[in-house]
Design a protein around this nucleic acid. Structure first.
Length: 604
DNA sequence: AAAAAAG
């Protein structure tokens, strides 16, 4: 059933494809071509996840040998003794082994990249600001952070990709996490999205796969045996991670495949059959593939959970436990496990420790100490007035935006129905928008995201499916039309703005229905040096003073703190990175603070 | 109670 305005006009004639930009006066329904349908090649196969192009032929399953080999011959499958001298020389200089044929046809993921990785120059970055970032680590024998990519031995191929991405210097989470992971340690990391955390876990995985020698076991059938598994809670996030990982692994011989629901499984099966070292997946589709015995986890050496706190909350935990504990994945200690999120509630940390072995906890704060990149506003708006209030905001925004051609507004609502209905209403009121939520087809979801990112529909009405991890440049304004019940969800939502060094605005509509959020929201805003309205403080003091589920413990400087350090369960701590005693005042989840118009690894 | 994730 077509519920979206975008869809309702999707079949309009295409001769108006060159219609004017979407920031002009609102179009009329009769002649309007939805922006996302303009200038599109006919028959674009939008069901295919981006960058699935994978063209190495004849590869199946883990390879019996190291990609370090400079040898001229393709490693033999199923040969256990291969590569005894494979690491001889130990250099990264020449790995022109058996992968070359495939490499020549490997799609260049840098060919059509979006501005995030391409158009900008790396000049004028104020890297000194990085030195101020509070970093907290705990655990046994924490490896020291590095300051440059050159200090890390990731190999020539990966180094080239780092250059292609125009990363000049590792971000704080990378500086700390990469040495930890290269040392083979398990890791629980608190760091905001947009802080380069995808690269922080991808680089060590790719380097590890290239370095090590894996023996192909002769298993039957069409089962594939990935060496690394990266799980994320939404399809779009998995797709995004896959796109990043493709860039990082370009011409390394390491193969990345993504699988998720809502897309044709046959295509994904074909990709898997062409070989997979790193599998990026959402839980449901992975379980399906495991049950069909098309994927085995026996060979997994690296397990990464992105948005790990979401992955371990009530809705996902059973599936994650099944994948990690009840299939054929090597147990804790036999694999390297890394958990990343911007928020890590204590209860979730306790759960997560089941999956970890002697792990290091890492929390990385934000850049700078006083400049808040996200201005948070809370307004008291009754349910009945929300729509007209939103309209006022959008009109005011339009007034001040005549010159900025690419400024996006992300509106979060509570329900899928509410998303459709608000989107339709906005259309009536002359604001081109689209919507993303779990009741839309995957094709529609991906189209909506593209249309929003490109600025063709500069308003996106979303449920929490878009709250986490998605890297959408140019989101100037996040509106919490309906506030979430959990303060961590709020942190993730507003984290969609204030990215890439730009300032962001986050507006929340608060009323009696949000009383349970009053206290944590007021605390959070205070900690991030925001103006807390007096009425909100009053609300906060009216509700219970107990430490409920929503209460942030241990201060919110980092959006998390190692739960092992609480109470008597103290395993010893070590500190690096100038955590000189608090006063940072802002939790993680607030965008990086470097100059605009520069690219760096922050632009992951 | 809602959202997400398999079909």
């Amino acid at each position: 059933m077509r519920t979206s305005w975008s869809d309702s006009v999707a079949n309009s004639a295409s001769e108006n494809a060159a219609a004017s930009g979407s920031f002009g006066p609102p179009p009329t329904r009769a002649t309007y071509i939805p922006p996302h349908l303009r200038n599109q090649p006919p028959c674009s196969d939008s069901l295919a996840p981006p960058s699935l192009g994978n063209d190495r032929v004849g590869y199946s399953g883990p390879v019996g040998g190291s990609r370090w080999d400079g040898g001229g011959s393709r490693p033999d499958h199923g040969r256990s003794g291969h590569g005894s001298g494979g690491r001889g020389g130990g250099g990264w200089n020449n790995r022109s082994g058996g992968w070359d044929r495939g490499r020549e046809r490997e799609v260049n993921p840098f060919g059509d990249v979006e501005p995030a990785c391409g158009e900008q120059e790396n000049t004028g970055i104020n890297f000194d600001a990085y030195e101020d970032i509070p970093v907290e680590t705990s655990g046994h024998n924490v490896p020291l952070p590095v300051n440059t990519f050159a200090e890390i031995d990731l190999g020539e191929a990966v180094n080239q990709n780092i250059q292609r991405c125009k990363y000049v210097k590792p971000t704080p989470v990378q500086r700390n996490a990469i040495p930890i992971l290269l040392a083979g340690r398990d890791l629980m990391a608190c760091a905001q999205t947009g802080s380069g955390k995808t690269a922080a876990f991808c680089f060590p995985i790719i380097a590890g796969i290239m370095r090590e020698q894996y023996v192909q076991r002769s298993h039957g059938g069409r089962t594939v045996y990935p060496l690394a598994l990266i799980l994320s809670p939404t399809r779009e996030l998995s797709s995004q991670i896959h796109d990043e990982a493709k860039k990082f692994s370009y011409q390394t011989g390491v193969k990345v495949v993504v699988v998720y629901g809502g897309a044709p499984i046959n295509q994904q099966l074909r990709e898997l059959e062409r070989g997979v070292d790193i599998l990026v997946a959402t839980p449901g589709r992975l379980v399906d593939l495991l049950e069909r015995a098309r994927v085995s986890l026996q060979m997994i050496r690296y397990l990464a959970l992105d948005e790990a706190d979401r992955m371990l909350d009530m809705g996902f935990e059973p599936q994650i436990r099944k994948i990690v504990e009840q299939m054929d994945m090597p147990p804790c200690g036999m694999r390297q496990t890394m958990l990343f999120s911007a928020t890590f509630p204590k209860e979730i940390q306790r759960l997560a420790s089941d999956f970890l072995s002697n792990y290091i906890f890492l929390a990385v704060g934000r850049v700078g100490s006083s400049t808040d990149l996200i201005v948070q506003r809370v307004e008291h708006v009754q349910e009945i007035d929300k729509r007209s209030h939103l309209l006022d905001l959008l009109h005011a925004q339009r007034e001040t935006e005549v010159n900025s051609k690419h400024s996006l507004t992300l509106v979060f609502v509570e329900t899928k129905k509410g998303a459709d209905s608000l989107e339709h209403w906005l259309y009536i009121k002359g604001f081109p928008s689209t919507t993303i939520h779990g009741d839309r087809t995957q094709q529609e979801r991906e189209m909506a995201l593209r249309s929003f990112k490109s600025g063709k529909t500069p308003i996106l009405v979303a449920t929490d499916v878009a709250a986490r991890g998605l890297d959408i440049p140019h989101v100037a304004h996040v509106v919490n039309f309906d506030l979430p019940n959990d303060i961590d969800d709020y942190v993730h939502r507003i984290g969609r703005t204030g990215r890439a060094g730009k300032t962001g605005l986050a507006t929340a509509f608060f009323n009696e229905n949000n009383m349970s959020l009053a206290r944590p929201l007021a605390d959070l805003m205070q900690e991030s040096n925001q103006v807390v309205p007096a009425w909100l403080t009053r609300c906060a003091s009216r509700v219970s003073h107990g430490g409920g589920k929503n209460r942030r413990t241990g201060g919110a400087r980092f959006g998390g703190r190692d739960f092992r350090r609480e109470g008597s369960f103290n395993k010893g701590t070590e500190y690096y990175g100038g955590n000189s005693g608090g006063g940072y005042g802002l939790p993680a989840g607030f965008g990086g603070g470097y100059n605009p118009a520069v690219a760096s690894a922050w632009d992951q």
